[in-house]
Design a protein around this nucleic acid. Structure first.
Lengths: 231, 231
DNA sequence: CCGCCTTTGTGATTAGGCTCACAAGCGCGC
DNA sequence: GCGCGCTTGTGAGCCTAATCACAAAGGCGG
């Protein structure tokens, strides 16, 4: 460790830091623990201990051998590394079912993300109040972004509109986009898009489920044919 | 290719098949195309062409050199591979903001996933009608699962209840779980859990955004100190 | 203050995916 | 029926991430 000046945290590690953060918060708030071993943290986060240690080592090695990690300090380190010491106002475009749910989703505010503006283009939605905010027309995006310092754009529109919304976000200088629409959006390389596709997850589940069912069916067929199952 | 009897499709490929599926449907329905090259499909799916070809080769090589892939046939193959030729009735546990949005989310039904039952434990929610379904008490899970052949369980509860709901799902024989609660759930190894954590995605965006801002700030600081920027 | 027990930090190894590059194959026009 | 241009299928190499295994380090009891 010592001079871990290679300030490149692997992507896979970055994706796990929020899970550690959540586990640590749980430990600190609900169980009043002071320290945690990589083994414990691994159990809570659903990964293995070696991975936890390696991941944390990228932050610079804050553990004590024979004891574990100081929870408070670790919380501080991860929070800082993830950039959660400052807040990132976010805007949602598309106030349909999903947009509304996201606007009222408590998980965001609990984790320091404030939704500060909602946008749509339909006349019967613009002006409506949702989750304490008045829905604005997408044409007023730039103004709101400048006023509120919005840095994250959330796309919750139908797939057809996703690309256009993404371009509008990019135009007003937003560099981080979370896309819930089931479509691919193209953006310049300096813009970061993450996507959450609800039905893709179900399709992946379907694949694995179908696979295990197919195996069961094959076994059954073998059994009926009186072919002894290989080991 | 030929004897691609190794019926092991890499996980990464499985995760992309739904994206190809979506792109192909778009091509077939909206543009009436008959064939597609790996290059085109790659553009639509936001990946590179070699990856498309390698992925499709795991299905057994259905392309024609010099021409491309027959869209109809490819659709059939992917649909079958993903197990989407049969339908997978799904149940949602937890009818809060998120559960309601998911229950009315059209993306599911459009892709062949029917939500056939909603469950909660709160008296003021049980009995309510949401998205055309009457919310049942979680105690009636087994009955509904047996009657409707439910094979996928969706957790949309607060994090505290997620583990308990997961166990109930497992008890009634559900092998595929989609977890929207921000918490890790432990299940037996033959049960497949996928998780969607909305705020983790934002936290990951925050990491990369903070990183680029930090770089910008450092540049700015250097500029002010009149230190010439390297390169 | 010494030795034992626990737990970290990390080099080495293995596995999995991605990308490249190109030969092989196919259709089409002449 | 032949050659040319296009596109696939895939081996090879590379890179990232996961896992393993163990020496190093700290704390604590006696």
């Amino acid at each position: 460790m010592a001079l871990m000046r290679t300030r490149t945290i692997p992507e896979a590690t970055v994706a796990r830091l929020p899970i550690y953060l959540r586990s640590l918060l749980d430990l600190a708030e609900n169980r009043g623990a002071m320290t945690v071993s990589s083994e414990q943290l691994a159990n809570l986060a659903g990964v293995n201990a070696a991975k936890v240690r390696k991941d944390l080592s990228y932050l610079g090695s804050y553990g004590t051998r024979g004891v574990g990690y100081d929870i408070e300090y670790l919380l501080y380190q991860i929070t800082r590394e993830l950039g959660l010491t400052q807040d990132w106002p976010a805007a949602i475009a598309g106030v349909g079912n999903l947009g509304r749910a996201l606007a009222s989703y408590k998980g965001f505010s609990e984790r320091g993300f404030r939704i500060t503006a909602l946008f749509d283009i339909l006349d019967d939605v613009v002006g409506e109040e949702v989750g304490g905010l008045i829905v604005k027309h997408l044409d007023d995006l730039k103004e709101a972004v400048n006023e509120q310092g919005i840095s994250i754009g959330i796309i919750a529109t139908p797939p057809m509109s996703a690309q256009e919304v993404a371009e509008r976000f990019v135009d007003v200088g937003i560099k981080s986009i979370l896309n819930f629409a089931p479509s691919v959006v193209n953006v310049p390389p300096d813009v970061n898009v993450r996507k959450v596709d609800l039905s893709i997850e179900l399709q992946i589940l379907s694949f694995y489920q179908q696979r295990t069912q197919a195996i069961a069916t094959a076994r059954e067929a073998n059994r009926r044919l009186n072919i002894p199952r290989p080991l």
